Amino acid sequence: MDEKAALRRTVHQYIRQMENRQEVDELIHQRLFATSLWKNSQTIAVTLSLPLEIETSPIIHEAFKEGKTVCVPKVMEQGLTFHVINSFDDLEIGVMNILEPTTSPTTQTIDLCLVPGRVFDRSGFRVGWGGGYYDRFLETYEGVTLSLAYSAQLVTHVPTEPHDLPVQWIVTEKESIQCLPFLS
């Protein structure tokens, strides 16, 4: 088993054993909503969470409540496309039982992209699910990147490959970490 797979497995085991996961998710959501990054963003890209990820539906609800535009990714052969949704009715079960948008791809500029991941280091490098879809998207993305993580998902060093791109910020239940010099 390679190092990334071992890290994923360790983190998955930890998350499965968390007893207060919903409360920790709420702390992470509140920390996110308190950031100037959230407050200053009008268009937010967010994935629909999978079972071992921080719940993202409350983030989508808050964005709707605040009048923000919500973009959700869809995996296509050529990579990720982002689609504006106006409600959860704009979603359907797609590949691998993951909710996907039914709307057309958007060309709208995304201010803040919430990038999923399994394991992170303080430099912003992450281990994802292994498909490389976000790394390919981030090659041309010019907005702010932020990942949500349980503090237990932070490790000293994430093994990287040349195509891996770090996120700028990580928000956990305990802290907000600026990973890279923030360029505006």
Rank of each mutant, 00 (worst) to 15 (best):
residue 151 S to N: 14
residue 174 K to H: 11
residue 18 M to W: 01
residue 67 G to N: 12
residue 77 E to G: 00
residue 17 Q to W: 00
residue 42 Q to V: 02
residue 56 T to L: 08
residue 151 S to F: 01
residue 55 E to S: 09
residue 58 P to Q: 11
residue 26 E to F: 00
residue 36 S to N: 15
residue 150 Y to E: 13
residue 98 I to D: 10
residue 141 Y to H: 10
residue 111 D to W: 03
residue 76 M to I: 04
residue 40 N to S: 12
residue 65 K to F: 12
residue 116 P to W: 12
residue 62 E to K: 15
residue 135 D to Y: 03
residue 30 Q to E: 15
residue 184 S to L: 11
residue 89 D to Y: 00
residue 107 T to S: 08
residue 37 L to E: 14
residue 145 T to H: 01
residue 175 E to P: 09
residue 173 E to L: 04
residue 127 V to Y: 01
residue 1 M to A: 12
residue 102 T to G: 06
residue 181 P to L: 07
residue 60 I to E: 05
residue 64 F to E: 07
residue 40 N to Y: 06
residue 12 H to E: 09
residue 67 G to I: 10
residue 85 I to W: 03
residue 127 V to G: 00
residue 41 S to K: 05
residue 56 T to A: 07
residue 179 C to N: 14
residue 17 Q to C: 01
residue 169 W to S: 08
residue 104 S to L: 14
residue 3 E to V: 11
residue 146 L to D: 12
residue 25 D to Y: 13
residue 122 R to T: 15
residue 112 L to N: 03
residue 16 R to A: 13
residue 110 I to Y: 00
residue 33 F to S: 06
residue 85 I to C: 05
residue 138 L to N: 03
residue 2 D to W: 12
residue 89 D to T: 05
residue 149 A to Y: 04
residue 3 E to Y: 07
residue 153 Q to N: 10
residue 120 F to W: 04
residue 48 L to H: 01
residue 89 D to W: 00
residue 127 V to E: 05
residue 1 M to W: 08
residue 116 P to C: 13
residue 59 I to W: 05
residue 7 L to D: 02
residue 180 L to I: 13
residue 72 V to H: 01
residue 61 H to E: 11
residue 131 G to E: 13
residue 78 Q to D: 09
residue 184 S to D: 11
residue 175 E to K: 03
residue 123 S to W: 02
residue 94 G to T: 13
residue 155 V to C: 08
residue 129 W to S: 11
residue 71 C to T: 06
residue 41 S to V: 04
residue 79 G to I: 06
residue 102 T to D: 04
residue 84 V to I: 15
residue 102 T to Y: 08
residue 152 A to T: 10
residue 173 E to W: 07
residue 140 T to E: 13
residue 145 T to P: 03
residue 89 D to L: 05
residue 41 S to T: 08
residue 83 H to S: 00
residue 129 W to R: 12
residue 142 E to Q: 15
residue 25 D to M: 08
residue 32 L to F: 11
residue 61 H to N: 07
residue 154 L to S: 10
residue 148 L to R: 05
residue 77 E to F: 00
residue 60 I to L: 10
residue 78 Q to F: 02
residue 176 S to W: 04
residue 66 E to Q: 15
residue 108 Q to F: 02
residue 30 Q to A: 09
residue 132 G to P: 09
residue 61 H to A: 07
residue 84 V to H: 00
residue 31 R to A: 15
residue 40 N to I: 04
residue 103 T to N: 02
residue 15 I to N: 10
residue 110 I to C: 00
residue 104 S to C: 08
residue 35 T to V: 06
residue 156 T to N: 07
residue 60 I to M: 12
residue 34 A to V: 09
residue 86 N to Y: 07
residue 58 P to C: 06
residue 164 D to F: 14
residue 43 T to W: 00
residue 20 N to M: 05
residue 34 A to Y: 04
residue 47 T to S: 12
residue 75 V to C: 15
residue 170 I to C: 13
residue 16 R to T: 10
residue 144 V to T: 15
residue 71 C to S: 02
residue 29 H to E: 02
residue 14 Y to I: 14
residue 97 N to I: 03
residue 138 L to F: 02
residue 141 Y to K: 01
residue 88 F to I: 05
